[in-house]
Amino acid sequence: MTRLHVVTGKGGTGKTTVAAALALALAAEGKRTLLVEVEGRQGIAQLFETEALPYEERKIAVAPGGSGEVYALAIDAERALLDYLQMFYKLGSAGRALKKIGAIDFATTIAPGLRDVLLTGKACEAVRRKGRDGRPVYDSVVMDAPPTGRVTRFLNVNDEVAGLARIGPIHNQAQAVMRVLKSQDTAVHLVTLLEEMPVQETVDGVAELREAGLPVGGIVINMVRPRILDAEAVRAAEGHRRTDVAKALSQAGLGGARRGGHAERLVGPLLEQAREHAERLGLEREQRAELAGLGLPAYELEFLGDGGDLAGLYRLAADLRKQGVAEEGS
């Protein structure tokens, strides 16, 4: 069963929102999830309308129904390294000295592999952590990961680090992290829109992940807008129905249907919008077919409009649950 859900997506597809909705969906029915962010942008805090997250796991939301809970953590590579040094070496003041001369900064910034090991390592540690009762502290962990273009490199820490640290604890840590990331415990989900560039990037991203042996979970099609009219209806309206449409608009109380009447003058602009709508639906159909070719489970989330608010987030979580996201991979 999937315990670590990694959520990625092209910029602008709403991956942070989807990650948060997924964490809420997985927390329903008395479960506890941890939502982690690794890029220091404090997107989670903004979504949940709270102050900036510290480097500390804290309860951020109650799942729909009230029995489950979502915790959140903004992982900071520097702090993670100090934690790590403390845990394994009981460094104490030497750790602070390292920080003072810039060694921590050095290790976490200039050597990207090391940084990624620390970030993914923290998430994997949360997955494996057990409470006093011997049960996992978190039923699942959801990571708001870097964008699709960088995610394979980010997760494939082993390769990154292999060239740099061939032996030693960092090397071992990378190996341990890789074991979790490549196991059945992990699923990488890709968020996309029904537009060409994000879909292309998703298809490329899936290929890269598969090549690296990382487990791909599902595709989340975000911001799906309602279908109101199809192309056939638009064609009919453009043809012999034009006057009928004007009459109908007039009946609806929108002015005169005669040439130059208010209703009649509405027909042109409304039809133009309908043509665009139909064109978009056609493009969306192509993109859906492209995604279907990946052979992955797909989830669709409606376009929220203004609702980047909490109510919208809970709606998305309910949608994901309805579509069976909590059962997938179990």
Partner: peptide, 28 residues
Amino acid sequence: TPYESARSAGEPDAAEVLAAGLLRLHAE
């Protein structure tokens, strides 16, 4: 789409259903 489901219900209604669809699209 509403237009299609109603098309079978009778020709005279089609224009009205279509107009209603155009209006909803416009509202969106």
